[in-house]
Amino acid sequence: MNLNTESPVPSRRRRIAISALLLIGLLAGAAERSAEAADFQPVDSLRQAAEAFVRAQAGAGADVVADSIDARMRLPACAAPLDTSSTNGGGGSARWTVSVRCTAPQAWAVYVPVRVVRRAAVVVAARDLPAGSVLSAADLRVEVRDTGSLSQGYVGDPAQVVGQVLSRPLAAGTSLTPAGLAQAAVVRRGDLVTLVSRSGGFEVRGQGKALANAAPGERLSVENNSSRRIVQGQVAADGTVEIPL
Rank of each mutant, 00 (worst) to 15 (best):
M1T: 11
N2I: 07
N4F: 06
E6G: 00
V9T: 14
P10V: 04
P10W: 10
I16F: 07
A20H: 03
L21R: 06
L21Q: 04
L21Y: 03
L26Q: 05
A28F: 06
A28C: 13
A30W: 15
A30G: 13
A31P: 04
A31I: 13
R33V: 13
A35V: 13
E36G: 12
A37M: 13
A38K: 13
D39F: 04
D39N: 14
D39T: 15
F40T: 15
D44I: 11
L46W: 09
L46R: 09
Q48W: 01
E51I: 10
E51K: 09
A52G: 00
F53Q: 05
R55N: 07
R55S: 14
A56W: 03
G59Y: 04
G59H: 04
G61C: 06
I69E: 02
D70N: 15
A71G: 04
R72E: 12
R74M: 11
R74Q: 15
L75Y: 03
C78I: 02
C78T: 07
A79F: 04
A80P: 01
L82G: 06
D83Y: 01
S85Y: 08
S85H: 10
T87Q: 13
G90R: 04
G92N: 14
G92Q: 12
G92Y: 09
A94P: 06
W96E: 04
T97Q: 12
V100P: 06
V100R: 03
V100L: 06
R101M: 08
T103K: 11
P105Y: 08
A107F: 05
A109V: 12
V110N: 02
Y111F: 15
Y111W: 10
V112T: 10
P113C: 10
P113F: 09
P113N: 10
R115C: 01
V116T: 12
A121T: 13
V123C: 10
V124I: 15
R127W: 08
L129Y: 01
V134L: 06
L135K: 08
A137N: 07
L140V: 03
E143H: 07
V144C: 05
V144E: 14
D146Y: 10
G148H: 12
L150Q: 11
V155D: 01
G156A: 14
D157L: 02
P158W: 09
V161H: 04
V162A: 09
V162F: 06
V165I: 10
R168P: 00
A172D: 05
G173L: 09
T174H: 07
P178R: 00
A179I: 00
G180P: 00
A182R: 13
A182M: 01
A184W: 06
A185D: 12
V187S: 07
V187C: 05
L192R: 14
V193C: 07
S197A: 13
R198D: 10
S199V: 09
S199P: 03
F202T: 14
V204G: 02
R205Y: 02
R205T: 13
G206P: 01
Q207K: 11
Q207F: 07
L211M: 12
A212W: 06
N213M: 00
P216V: 01
E218I: 01
S221V: 04
N224I: 00
S227W: 02
S227A: 09
R229P: 00
I230F: 08
G233L: 05
V235E: 03
V235T: 06
V235I: 01
A237R: 11
D238L: 03
D238V: 02
T240I: 03
P244L: 05
